[in-house]
């Protein structure tokens, strides 16, 4: 039996932030576990006060932004899943 836990996308609203931001992903068996795991994995340094979770499989994404015809738009599903880590303000060299 495959016991791989499904993948979830995690969105966190920080104290200063206006909206929930994608912070990363994790594995969990259901939404409740995903929220709890998100607290432990993504708010170890008090990064957030509100957590949203969504199954990666349920996230639909637009096609790649590039207009170049060589990069043909594929389907609207994320290829496995996107990991849109926000750029922390502290990191200046990006």
């Amino acid at each position: 039996m495959s016991s791989e836990w499904p993948l979830w996308e995690i969105f966190i609203r920080s104290q200063h932030g206006l909206a929930h931001k994608h912070v990363g992903s994790l594995h969990a068996v259901d939404a409740q576990m995903a929220i709890r795991n998100a607290r432990d994995v993504y708010t170890r340094r008090n990064e957030g006060i509100s957590i949203w979770v969504a199954r990666s499989a349920d996230i639909h994404a637009s096609s790649p932004g590039d207009k170049d015809a060589l990069f043909e738009p594929s389907n609207d599903k994320v290829y496995r899943h996107p990991t849109f880590f926000p750029m922390p303000d502290e990191v200046k060299h990006i």
Binding site: W5, L26, H27, A28, R36, N37, D40, V41, R44
Partner: peptide
Amino acid sequence: PALEEDIALTN
């Protein structure tokens, strides 16, 4: 038993 759980239990 899982990476997520390892992290949570350590908390």
